[in-house]
Computed example of a mutant assay.
Amino acid sequence: MLSTLVFAAQTTPATIDWNPSVAIVMIMCNLIAIAIGRYAIQKPGQGPDLPVPQPEMWDKFGVPELLATTSLGHIIGAGVILGLGNAGVL
């Protein structure tokens, strides 16, 4: 058991450091998730509204929708960043 844990600790891949290209990938993943969520959420506008002015086409996009879509965007972004980092692209 102990040898398995030591072996697992030695084979853990290194992750890449933060840099502007990592930030751009995360921002793009969040924007894609927001765009998908804008049309996929079935009952928009159920919670509080965003405290900033919004364009007319985003009138029913409130705090719950923003939190849900950016949470999904961060999950997708983490996977994309890890994948691109392991592939050597980032």
Rank of each mutant, 00 (worst) to 15 (best):
68 A>K: 02
51 P>Q: 11
56 E>L: 11
54 Q>I: 01
4 T>K: 03
4 T>G: 02
46 Q>Y: 00
30 N>V: 04
34 I>M: 15
49 D>K: 02
49 D>L: 01
53 P>E: 08
4 T>Y: 05
40 A>Y: 01
14 A>L: 14
58 W>N: 00
16 I>R: 12
33 A>W: 02
50 L>R: 05
73 G>K: 08
15 T>A: 05
52 V>S: 02
78 A>F: 13
19 N>H: 15
51 P>F: 04
19 N>M: 11
62 G>T: 06
31 L>N: 06
86 N>M: 12
88 G>R: 08
30 N>F: 05
61 F>A: 05
2 L>E: 09
45 G>A: 13
50 L>T: 14
19 N>A: 08
43 K>A: 15
71 S>Y: 15
66 L>D: 01
72 L>E: 06
2 L>D: 02
65 E>L: 00
45 G>K: 09
48 P>R: 05
74 H>M: 14
3 S>K: 15
36 I>G: 03
4 T>C: 03
46 Q>I: 04
79 G>Y: 10
2 L>P: 04
40 A>G: 12
20 P>F: 05
35 A>V: 03
77 G>M: 00
61 F>E: 01
40 A>F: 07
79 G>W: 07
34 I>S: 02
33 A>P: 07
89 V>D: 00
83 G>N: 11
32 I>C: 06
68 A>C: 06
62 G>A: 06
33 A>Q: 03
49 D>H: 01
71 S>C: 13
60 K>R: 13
17 D>P: 12
